[in-house]
């Protein structure tokens, strides 16, 4: 199954996001080896050069490191992965609050609605 990619944003950025989420969710565990560029590209159904670019960017950020002969690995720095997790969580919340604002909800109203919703009141 090819990865689910949008058609209007640069592909390599979307690949980065998908791999980041795979790392956060533990699909790729800290310290584990990533599949080869070609295998990942084939799995995602994208151009290997684009996948290479995404991995190079992940490497630059430190989330992934390469060992000359044996391939690419996920960082063992669990704190870094946790940091990324909270950064992405904040971004999601920002987006959510922005959508709510467009619907006409103030922050306090959104919060009240949210806690009501979480208590199981979906009416």
């Amino acid at each position: 199954m090819a990865w689910n990619l949008n058609s209007d944003r640069p592909i390599f950025m979307q690949l980065i996001e998908i791999i980041q989420i795979s790392i956060i969710s533990g699909k790729y565990a800290p310290g584990s080896k990533l599949p080869s560029v070609r295998d990942l590209a084939s799995e995602a159904a994208v151009n290997p050069n684009t996948m290479q670019k995404a991995l190079a960017e992940l490497e630059r950020s430190g989330l992934v490191f390469s060992q000359r002969t044996s391939g690419r690995f996920i960082t063992e720095d669990v704190a870094m992965i946790e940091d990324l997790k909270s950064t992405l969580a904040k971004e999601k919340m920002k987006q959510f609050l922005e959508s709510m604002r467009q619907l006409g909800f103030q922050k306090e109203e959104t919060l009240a609605l949210m806690s009501k919703f979480l208590k199981g009141d979906h009416s």
Partner: peptide, 10 residues
């Protein structure tokens, strides 16, 4: 491809 997407948003 990525340049087209970046520059045109499509």
């Amino acid at each position: 491809v990525d340049k087209i997407r970046e520059e045109n948003g499509k």
